[in-house]
Design a protein around this nucleic acid. Structure first.
Lengths: 213, 213
DNA sequence: GCTCGGATTTAGGGATACCGAAATACCCGC
DNA sequence: GCGGGTATTTCGGTATCCCTAAATCCGAGC
């Protein structure tokens, strides 16, 4: 039953991504939107995942990963984030440009190559966006963070994580020097960086950046 | 018409590999054996390739790449060999262990990443087995060679290329220090390397090694 | 409590790429 | 020149993953 495929991995990864930073389980329609497939495709695939014991799902109910499903999902996330880190460290990719390439490679890399890349990079704990890289045993090194949209006015902290969902936002932030590790201060809708740099962020932007508490 | 898929790429690559070192066009049954698929699958896929103008094929006739098909095949070969070279140079793979990994990655790498790897490696002309790496423009740097089974008794030369088809043979040769670039002498069925090393080769082994003339 | 609209599932198909079995074409040896 | 065996193709089917259109469910608001 070690059945897998790029499609299955993408479903598990997307289900996991939804709960990584908030607790509500994902619904079929959200899953369909994120994967850019029709809702009926989700119904079908979720049925298959449930049959393999990777998710729990009652008709018309929410979708939740089982322990087995979570473990598979973390494996995919690990691949994705190590590939991203490798592309930036070794191949000269900008950290705003690695997502699509990693999306494909995460399904193509053997365990052996994954291990070689991990060793080569010195077993990093975070990828270029600040996302934690699950370790081979499934454990995750975490840091306490606040989402920008939930931070109090005037909050100052180090950028820990920036969601890689919107490449355009990533490029805008990269241009202003806002990246993981940089110290910033929130004033209203504007984020002040070092050397007087500042970016104004809309609601989506404030949902995409996490600072240290 | 930029239709492609891993399956199509594998067919084109395999058709090309058959004619790379000898002129006879490949037959459907040989193609089926090399790809480990049923003959009927080959008929079907070849029909599709012919419809896309990538091969010429009359029913019951031989299969030949068109110019368009050759160009696509060379693209796949380039990917494969650059990936092999990268795995050996950067990731600590043995040159006898890279084939299977490259077989998968060759279908997953974007043009942009391919270019980055090529630049990173210093635009190599040959992969770890001595196979020429087609350049981005499709040109190939070639060296005059003799196949061991066609070399006269006592012939001495530098190992230029070793077929990567049989991993066990590759491991045996690696253990004896026989690899591309090494000076050897053929005596009967035995190949003498430097420092008194020697390997006895069967008919298949003598079909897998090329020396300088 | 009922209804209506959005979310979800069911039903019926399509594309890709594979298979085994059965039919057919080809060619070698006599 | 004719078998007969092998190579090749045809035919009907399978598995995966996707789609659209048509039910059906569910819960929010009246």
């Amino acid at each position: 039953m070690a059945n897998t495929s790029p499609a299955i991995e993408d479903y598990l990864k997307t289900i996991h991504a939804h709960t990584e930073w908030q607790p509500e389980p994902i619904t079929p329609s959200v899953l369909a939107t994120r994967l850019a497939v029709a809702p009926s495709s989700v119904t079908e695939m979720v049925k298959k995942l449930a049959a393999q014991g990777l998710v729990t799902h009652q008709p018309y109910g929410a979708i939740r990963l089982t322990d087995a499903g979570l473990s598979r999902a973390l494996g995919v996330v690990r691949r994705h984030r190590l590939v991203e880190t490798w592309l930036v460290s070794d191949m000269g990719y900008g950290w705003d440009a690695v997502h699509d390439e990693a999306e494909v490679l995460e399904h193509a890399i053997s365990d052996r190559l994954l291990e070689a890349i991990d060793a080569h990079l010195g077993r990093p704990a975070r990828d270029p966006h600040g996302d934690p890289i699950p370790q081979a045993d499934g454990s995750i090194v975490s840091v306490p963070t606040v989402l920008l949209s939930e931070a109090p006015a005037g909050h100052a902290g180090t950028v820990v994580r920036i969601s890689d969902r919107d490449p355009q936002l990533l490029r805008r932030l990269a241009a202003c020097g806002i990246r993981p590790g940089v110290l910033v201060t929130l004033s209203g809708d504007t984020l002040d960086g070092p050397d007087g740099t500042a970016v104004e962020l809309d609601a989506d932007g404030r949902e995409a950046i996490w600072l240290t508490t």
